[in-house]
């Protein structure tokens, strides 16, 4: 009996809720949504961060520098430098460049501190860049 009453109530609610229909959103709702999406996609294009030097360029430059370093360290320079005129080599010897350079006496503490500072500066730049990118993205 109780089950019947509950079923009757269910049937009544279902019938009336469908008859009364849903809430009506404003007439221009769809247009507003589409306009908002278009506006936000335009804004994201304008705000989109594009680095001055692309990742591809950085990779190419890194590869070139790494290649040169490897060549200098492991390459056979004796053959490659044979084309240099002997006179030029003699002139550079005469200049004694190392003697003209000022001699800096740096303590180990100073060197370590400098390396540490440079390391943390590098990290800070990366963190700040990401921070500003994320906060700008929220606007």
């Amino acid at each position: 009996m109780k089950g019947n009453r509950e079923n009757d109530f269910d049937a009544f609610v279902q019938k009336r809720i469908k008859a009364e229909a849903l809430e009506q959103p404003p007439k221009d709702f769809t247009v507003s949504v589409v306009e908002r999406i278009e506006m936000e996609s335009k804004a994201s294009v304008l705000m989109n961060y594009k680095p001055l030097i692309s990742k591809y360029t950085w990779l190419t430059l890194s590869a070139i520098i790494l290649g040169l370093l490897c060549f200098l360290v492991f390459g056979n320079l004796a053959i490659e430098t044979a084309w240099l005129p002997e006179i030029a080599i003699q002139n550079t010897k005469l200049l004694n460049l190392s003697e003209h350079l000022p001699k800096l006496a740096l303590s180990n503490t100073y060197v370590y501190a400098f390396i540490g500072l440079a390391f943390f500066m590098g990290i800070q730049v990366y963190i700040l860049k990401n921070h500003f990118r994320s906060t700008r993205g929220l606007l």
Binding site: L22, P25, T30
Partner: peptide, 10 residues
């Protein structure tokens, strides 16, 4: 949007 706006709004 037209298909689901009524239910979403409700």
């Amino acid at each position: 949007v037209d298909r689901y706006k009524h239910m979403v709004f409700t």
